[in-house]
């Protein structure tokens, strides 16, 4: 089973790298935010799997909870910050 969790974690890391393209490419601020949000949510699952790979799930699950709550509050705060008509949504015009 340890082997299976290790391979799953490796595949998941490759999947997490895909939205980074959207973060770099844009074109609007909100597309970048969706990319970072997707990376943050998938990392929650990755931390759980790494906990099973190292056999220390009791410690890693607490890290997961704290990470999930911090990521959620962070994305809400950024959404609130950009929520006005003064935001220039495109970088390139």
């Amino acid at each position: 089973m340890d082997q299976f969790f290790l391979y799953s974690a490796v595949i998941l890391t490759a999947i997490i790298a895909v939205p980074a393209y959207r973060v770099v490419k844009g074109p609007t601020v909100f597309d970048r935010l969706v990319g970072t949000n997707a990376i943050a949510t998938k990392t929650i699952v990755l931390i759980c799997l790494i906990g099973y790979v190292f056999d220390r799930i009791g410690m890693f699950i607490d890290i997961t909870l704290a990470y999930a709550i911090l990521g959620f509050v962070g994305s809400l705060t950024i959404a609130k910050y950009f929520s006005s008509e003064n935001v220039n949504v495109r970088y390139d015009d």
Partner: peptide
């Protein structure tokens, strides 16, 4: 979170 982002985008035009 998805709703907050979509709403912010709509408000930003």
């Amino acid at each position: 979170g998805a709703h907050a982002l979509a709403r912010a985008a709509l408000n930003a035009g």
